[in-house]
Design a protein around this nucleic acid. Sequence first.
RNA 1: CGGGGCAUAGCGCAGUCCGGUAGCGCACCUGGUUUGGGACCAGGGGGUCGUAGGUUCGAAUCCUGCUGCCCCGACCA
Length: 492
Amino acid sequence: MADKITPKEEDYSEWYNDIVKQAGMAEHSAVKGCMVIKPHGYAIWEKMQAELDRMFKETGHVNAYFPLFVPKSLFEAEEKNAEGFAKECAVVTHYRLKADEAHKGKLMVDPDAKLEEELVVRPTSEAIIWNTYKNWIQSYRDLPLLINQWANVVRWEMRTRLFLRTAEFLWQEGHTAHASAQEALEETRKMLDVYADFAERFLAIPVIKGVKTAHERFAGAEETYCIEAMMQDGKALQAGTSHFLGQNFAKAFNVTFANKEGKQEHVWATSWGVSTRLIGALIMAHSDNKGLVLPPKVAPIQVVIVPVYRDLGQLETITIRVKEIVGALKARGIAVKYDDRDNQRPGWKFAEYELQGVPIRLAIGLRDLENGTAELARRDEQTKENVPIEGIDIRIERLLGEMQEAIYQKALSFRESHIYHAHNWNEFEDMIANRPGFVYAHWDGTTATELEIKEKTKATIRCIPLDGADEPGTCVLTGKPSTRKVLFAKAY
RNA sequence: CGGGGCAUAGCGCAGUCCGGUAGCGCACCUGGUUUGGGACCAGGGGGUCGUAGGUUCGAAUCCUGCUGCCCCGACCA
């Protein structure tokens, strides 16, 4: 029982898989590359959704829903975007099955039910959305148009990993239209800030904001912004992207508006998204060898109370007191669960809730009732203390806040201690090969150099950090001049 | 798309080399003792061994085809 989870020092990848499975977050399905998100995993997603949705609405966005299918002719309208996704599109070609005469009880695709035009299962929704927006936008008075959708998308990946990369995944995609490039750029940056704020404040994952290189840019975008997070194995994980699409989609779908002077102009666009991949980020940023560690803000259950008793009479006595505590915690908006199941013993429950990452556990027995105390265990630091029941709701509320901050600080100091600066090629190669983490280095700005570095070291440019200061130097590979360091790492 | 692995009870596995009618741990059900870190004892239920065919008196086991999933690489959020 003690060995449910492979230690991360032994095999990081197995450790990750074990956490996902043992914490009951997701499992592989009968469909290749697709996962079943189980209740505990989905509850975490719902917490993320609720907070993001609130943040989107606070910044003026509204939700809508667009179709799963995109007619091929629409999909290919914006050429760069279409080309970028072409290799991983699922395509619907028929709309009917029929009995297979040759194999009793089996079905076959009805060759007479071939679609006149194939339907692409959306890998992203720009095409169908811009085709719709053109009917919604006539005048500058219709702008900005600020819409988000919560949806599933399909990208036919060769190699998949639960949450990190699956053929189908859940996400949100914001699609906005603006009257000027300036305004669209501001929106792009604003949503990047929303994501960074969400990642740091809510998920307790420190991120680096930056711009993608031309090579890593979203197909069809003029500029792609991103937030990059460091996982506990030192690898980078892109946690969110925000794109300035220029007028590319407006031109492809002929979306124009009359400006104040009555002249027709193409609108300026943005799109931005985060996905269930964030659940993978959450796991890899904070968890330990005992299971999931959840920052209190994302935890579906923040406090679990486990009664310790000898017989049902004692349980009843304890329950009366616990109900008061539950009431007091709920009154403070704390998500609390009282686990009075009689078919599992306390030790079993302790282990189970640690696996699931519940931030605080209270154990209460008769001994505690006599002393007016409870045993309080915090998941992140695995510490236990006896605390007075009197005022425990206040204590817990404060502790949840402290834990949120502590988890963030821990991730931050891990990241800071795994960031290096390479001054020459030997140093760079050595760091990438032998030190898990991020490496800042000068780059000459060309895709050729970027690809050569990737070829040689497997490291890619995660981003050109926004907060980096200009600092003239020479490219770590070619020695050509560079104005600023960029961020290299091996990535998920 | 290449290379490897796996498919036997809800889960994890043994049995396959050497054919004889299926077993272990966990979970589940019943009863009892237990309960402050994954309890114990006794009894019990559950499997057309991925699928189709072949060899054989007899196939989880040998042969052939098929399917699915996982892992490692190339490609990607």
